[in-house]
Design a binder for these strands. Structure first.
Lengths: 350, 350
DNA sequence: CCCGGGACGGTAAGCGCTTTCTACTCGGGG
DNA sequence: CCCCGAGTAGAAAGCGCTTACCGTCCCGGG
């Protein structure tokens, strides 16, 4: 049915081995022979059987990319960057790789099952993006799975998340804590004293680090007291921001600023404020995090922290292919950059 | 090194064949035997070798998803939907499939090479998303590649694009023309007479259909004359919208409405207008297309056409797995829904 | 003039799994 | 009491490719 190596070999009047060698270019083949083979490949429209070569060579050109939700630009941008990087053929190690994108939806179990599937496909590398769940059992299970993957010859890279404790997989991580600190500091400098915080989901490193940065800044300004009362938890979605903002407003009507866990949450908060007739930033300032593309286009444009998502994805891709060797310690830290826009201003009468 | 079927077989005291049958569950195996095998699998932490089974069984559980740009929510949403659908194990045909996301970046050549790579991986199905390039040579090349894929046993499904002429792959398509018509009609009904159009890239079906719908509405209102002069071309990005809006404004200062090819372009246009001190919608109405999540959160909220991206992705996924049989003709058409929000209003003095 | 070695090319042994075909064990009807 | 078929399990033949491991051929140096 399908054209095989052997067919090409016959047509070119050589052995299968020679065809294989021409195709993989890792063994000397005389120019004339090579041409004959290539012509035969053309004429027969031969396409290598990936599984067969993967089996024989014990490697595949698949790279797994785990994301929470590919529809979210935060992950989309990183995944796209990884893909663009691994899609380029490498001199050292063979042709372009394909990205297998796995949507975990934030579920730890799916994370694990996807890893099993990837191991099953003998993926050459796996990139884990997104915040880590802070749960000891899951951490252990994850470390186990990743360890087995690595033992099976796959490279494992973390992207946009802190290193995995107890393991030493290379990681490209964001300095969420520092970014959050700067953001809150910015608001404090503007004169705000009553700041609400819309936190992300529990038990996520990202959530915790951003919250910690926020509180660090508050503490430095002697404002640690209110922090607990003025923190509302939700997920990283728009409606959590909407509900959270209303909740904050009811807890503290004199609020002058809302710090959201990310841009999407901030957007929801803005919507809630607008619906309540609260002006931004005149009455209440709002800040986001991530600087997704839409952040500068909403009105008012969001003050936020820009995360180099694309760059992180590219680095992760390079690490995954072994094009780049991780620094000592294995952690590449990407700093966020404070983007001051129109959603923040001094408080009323400030 | 790695644990193989044979190892499991030895441990369970059965033959490799039996282990395979237990794992695939397509042949009767006595309960006791089955349990012994499963226990051995557990104990050895055995993970099937995907390439090997793909080779032996001549199928793989990979599904290719081609997108223009996975970082764009338009594609991210569809890809995510496809993935969630194929990720569920099917009763009829085996375990969960993995999605291989391929970013073509809109390049026809990359589209073709990715298809080759997918064929090489013996992908079980391929979903092509996004507008098609209107170029005869490329159409033919594409049809050829897809034909070969299909011949190799892969299911081919188009998603968010019109059927491929000359072939009859099932397609889930959006009625862009009708959506655009309704949108422009809406503006006309509000009293607008001088409408500018920010078109997408040349030679794309999506671009053409939306433009045609727009002009159809104009023509019906006897306004066909100005259409050419008031159409500016760009890509589907924000900056094209920005530049395009300025261009339109200079061509026709009396403009009262701008119809953008999609939400992102509309966003850019809004930014340009704001920078020019033009109020939306008081001075100029702006409309988008797609209804991406951010559309309702920008200010003013965008009047646009909602496309059922998620649903389309799910349908495409189902078709790709053969869970759903395509209707006669092979085309599932998804209608857009006009979403009237605050970016459109009657013209000055209208 | 002979021999060692470099440059090619072929042979064949798997890679780990699926699946056909065969073999064996029972239990019941003839 | 024998035979047959249902129910299970095993043996073995590949699936299409890669890659040691060997031949060949031809060149130049001794």
């Amino acid at each position: 049915m399908a054209v095989t190596l052997a067919d090409v070999a016959v047509r070119a009047g050589v052995s299968a081995a020679t065809v294989s060698r021409v195709l993989n270019g890792n063994y000397p083949v005389a120019g004339a022979t090579r041409n004959r083979v290539l012509r035969a490949v053309e004429e027969l429209e031969y396409v290598v059987n990936g599984p067969a070569s993967a089996l024989a060579a014990a490697t595949s050109d698949l790279v797994g990319v785990l994301v929470n939700d590919i529809a979210d630009p935060f992950f989309g941008i990183m995944a796209g960057a990884v893909q663009s990087e691994i899609g380029e053929p490498t001199a050292e190690r063979g042709g372009p790789k394909l990205a297998v994108v796995c949507n975990t939806g934030g579920s730890p179990e799916r994370e694990l099952t996807f890893l099993t599937h990837l191991q099953r496909q003998r993926a050459g590398a796996v990139v884990l993006t997104g915040g880590a769940l802070e749960d000891e059992a899951h951490r252990a299970a994850l470390a186990g799975r990743l360890g087995r993957l690595e033992a099976a010859g796959a490279r494992v890279v973390l992207c946009g998340r802190p290193p995995l404790e107890g393991s030493d997989f290379p990681a490209v991580t964001f300095d969420n804590r520092e970014g959050a600190r700067q953001l809150t500091e910015h608001l404090l400098k503007l004169g705000h004293r009553r700041l609400g915080y819309l936190a992300g989901p529990q038990a996520r490193t990202t959530t915790r680090h951003r919250l910690e940065g926020h509180r660090e800044a508050l503490a430095a300004a002697g404002l640690a007291g209110d922090a607990g009362r003025l923190t509302v938890r939700g997920d990283y979605g728009r409606s959590a921001g909407y509900a959270g903002a209303l909740e904050l407003l009811s807890r503290e009507p004199e609020l002058t600023a809302i710090v959201a866990a990310n841009d999407t949450v901030a957007l929801g908060a803005c919507a809630a404020l607008r619906d309540r007739g609260v002006r931004i930033p005149e009455d209440v300032s709002v800040t986001g995090f991530d600087d997704l593309p839409f952040a500068r286009d909403v009105t008012p444009a969001l003050t936020t922290v820009r995360l180099p998502l694309h760059e992180a994805g590219v680095r992760a891709g390079r690490l995954a292919l072994g094009r780049e060797t991780p620094p000592a310690g294995g952690v590449v830290t990407c700093d966020g950059e404070l983007m001051v826009r129109n959603s923040s201003a001094g408080p009323r009468g400030g």
